[in-house]
Write a protein that binds this DNA or RNA. Structure first.
Lengths: 122, 122
DNA sequence: TTTATATATGAATGCATGTTCATATATTCA
DNA sequence: TGAATATATGAACATGCATTCATATATAAA
């Protein structure tokens, strides 16, 4: 893992060895990227609504289609994105694709964020 | 608050009154939007690195500038965005603008997401 | 006051992403 | 087998955003 302090900037407050250690403590670049990708997926109203609905009960695509004011196509695209990050999972039931929240981390994440947002109201 | 079930879609699995209740249980539209905005801000590698650094110690802009391989301008823009959502806060110390994490929710959020990402490795 | 440093901001650009439309696949039912 | 329903996918368009460059403001040092 590369650690690189850009000392050409020459900030008088920098403690080089401390900063070096702090940079070492950063998650690996690929972990950072996966975290940001996850948050990126949680950044859409439609996908959030899907997650809040699925948190209550597993649902097939056409149920979601009844509940949300977007195209069925948009819902499928959203679900694929959520699936790719393992935020939701599918099981086939006859001709229906029934989606459910992947695990409790996901619920905890959105609940925590909801807390943050509703507590401080700027 | 409007609840609208789109029954023209006519999904055989829909239980109208249940779905109606589930839609009522959704957070208000503006809360959803604020949640998605928050996640949107957490979706950038640069801003995440800033948060992971600030989680270790408060830092001024030029310290961050030494630690990260992006422009000082980019860092300032990122910090403003983080500030606007109350994810970080500033205090002035002489000519330095010293930033720190706003509260523990924020730490908890990114830690939880890091957990999720590092546990399931697709 | 002049100079240097620290931070912020605006404009411009390039890239990514969400949605819709059109269409393809898959499953059930007649 | 054929028709209807359920879901997925691709292309296209429009929008939003992160970064950089250039520059402005603010604080300190000389």
């Amino acid at each position: 893992m590369h650690v690189h302090i850009f000392m050409d900037k020459n900030c008088p407050r920098v403690n080089v060895s401390l900063l070096d250690e702090m940079i070492h403590n950063l998650p690996d670049a690929n972990v950072i990227t996966r975290i940001s990708t996850t948050f990126q997926v949680l950044q859409s109203d439609t996908r959030l609504k899907i997650l809040f609905l699925l948190a209550q009960k597993e649902m097939c695509v056409c149920e979601l289609d009844c509940a949300l004011d977007v195209t069925q196509s948009a819902i499928s695209h959203s679900l694929r994105t959520l699936r790719q990050l393992d935020l939701v999972r599918v099981k086939k039931e006859g001709r229906f694709a029934v989606y459910h929240i992947a695990d409790d981390h996901v619920k905890a994440l959105i609940d925590l964020c909801k807390e943050h947002v509703t507590e401080c109201s700027p």
